[in-house]
Design a protein around this nucleic acid. Structure first.
Length: 427
RNA sequence: GGAGAGAUGGCCGAGUUGGUCGAAGGCGCCUGAUUCGAAAUCAGGUGUACGGGUAACCGUACCGGGGGUUCGAAUCCCUUUCUCUCCGCCA
């Protein structure tokens, strides 16, 4: 959520963000919002006057004789009639205004490229040598089948499409990747944390997810206000809601582990084969709370960690600066890191990191005091994928496959795989 | 799941026969005095949001959330969430 005071002062900047993000300006109407806001402020002012009058008269009642008292009470009742109506208007205006206010996306960083879809994201760097094979490389679905490590067919019996079982070395890899991420990020000051896999609507909304309605991306739990989380960003972000930090406790960095559940409604089509777009996966997520002036630096720090992890694994990748039209509403700027996936001879997103500035902190009410006696400001919040297990598995299987259908396990994971260094072909 | 108790400012904690309570007291923090400096001590200050004003400042709201009673609610009633204790069930 943006600061309404900022919207009042800089409506053009907000409009530009909406336009560049290719959002529906009819629906997300800044002028209408400001109009409602003006009316709300007028009503607020009037209500204040009336309440002031009421309070003054009310407090005098005690001292008055019975005769006068009746008269004044009637007078106050008259004020109350008008006040009740204005308070009703005030509430309606505030509700309508806030609905619109919450639809506004974050501002855009200066260096966010123009563009409508992910095809217009701009490559900013790349790393690693693309593998060459003297055989026809298999994709991860085929590899998962012949090594008996990923089973989609049987999962379909239990949960339907886009679920899977991991078996044998894939399970080792899942656990090893989590341990690998921890081992790498612990010395960097990240606090490991496991979180609930569910969260309340209030928290989902605070982070910028729609918990209900046609645009929701999450599973709801019946007869509760809970949803399965799509990322630990939600639960780690909600962790400190309502709190005020001393500046010297920031930045605060977490490495959150959770399962991620996504309905992926309407996302079927290309790029949805195999593990790429599934309803459940495990993820290690970096999450940083910091001071306002520090967030750009923290964003680069998270990105550097994401790159370091892929480099240690030996997976070729490129970094793209996500264009305005492909950015999520809470993000001021986002990098996607795309690993090379030989199964489709293309790069595919494996991690991303977003600078959400104070957009999430405002609704979650997470603040800090820049100085001990200063008024609190909202913290800046950033998130980035350390390891998304499912997509990392794609990259590992496809990049490290051999002609005989076996797969070598990256050296960086050997300390965590119980001595297992390769995945044998079983068919 | 059943029965009770509670939720107050950055923290702890008074206040429940409704009015002078944004809220005692303490801690913490800030400023000043004292000191070579510090500790200790003493004095003063110290919530958030919204609205108004160039400003000093003024008004309004906020005592977990929502609703109600009343001229007036931290205080009374209803409801909801959470916490704690006890009982039951269970990994």
């Amino acid at each position: 959520m943006l600061d309404i005071k900022y919207v009042r002062a800089h409506p053009e900047v907000v409009k530009t963000s909406i336009q560049r993000r290719n959002l529906n300006a009819e629906k997300i109407n800044v002028d209408h919002l400001l109009d409602l806001d003006t009316k709300w402020r007028e009503a607020q002012s009037r209500a204040n006057d009336l309440r002031g009058q009421r309070n003054e008269l009310s407090s005098s009642i005690k001292k008055l004789a019975a005769e006068e008292r009746k008269e004044v009470i009637n007078k106050v009742k008259g004020i109350k009639g008008e006040l009740t109506q204005i308070e009703k208007d005030l509430e309606d205006l505030a509700t309508e205004r806030d609905v619109l206010l919450r639809l506004l996306p974050n501002l855009l960083a200066d260096d966010v490229p123009d563009g409508k879809t992910d095809e217009e994201n701009v490559e900013v760097s790349h790393w690693g040598q693309l593998p060459t094979f003297d055989f026809e490389p298999r994709d991860h679905v085929a590899l998962g089948e012949i090594t008996d490590t990923i089973d989609f067919d049987r999962a379909a019996k239990v949960t339907g499409s886009n679920f899977y079982y991991l078996k044998h070395e894939a399970v080792l890899l899942e656990q090893a990747l989590c341990s690998f991420a921890t081992a790498h990020l612990l010395p960097e000051g990240f606090i490991p944390i496991t979180t609930p896999d569910l969260a309340r609507s209030e928290v989902l909304e605070g982070i910028g997810f729609a918990p209900r309605g046609p645009e929701k991306q999450v599973y709801n739990v019946e007869e509760t206000d809970l949803s399965l989380v799509g990322t630990a960003e939600i639960t780690v972000g909600g962790y400190h809601s309502g709190e005020i930090f001393d500046a010297d406790t920031l930045p605060l960095s977490y490495l959150g582990f959770s399962h991620c559940f996504r309905t992926e409604a309407g996302a079927y089509g290309k790029e949805s084969r195999g593990l790429y777009r599934v309803h459940q996966f495990t993820k290690a997520e970096m999450f940083v709370l910091c001071e306002e002036a520090d967030s750009t630096r923290q964003h680069e720090r998270i990105r550097a960690q994401e790159e370091a992890l892929l480099q240690e694994l030996g997976i070729p990748y490129r970094v793209v600066n996500v264009c305005a039209g492909d950015l999520g509403a809470p993000a001021l700027k986002k990098y996607d890191i795309e690993a090379w996936m030989p199964g489709r001879s293309a790069y595919g997103e494996v991690t991303s990191c977003s600078n959400c500035t104070d957009y999430q902190a405002r609704r979650l009410n997470i603040r800090y005091r820049p100085e001990p006696t200063a008024s609190p400001k909202h913290v800046h919040m950033l998130n980035g994928t350390a390891i998304a297990i499912s997509r990392t598995l794609i990259a590992i299987l496809e990049n490290f496959q051999r002609a005989d259908g076996s797969v070598s396990i990256p050296k960086a994971l050997h300390p965590f795989t119980a001595g297992v260094k390769e995945i044998p072909c079983r068919r």
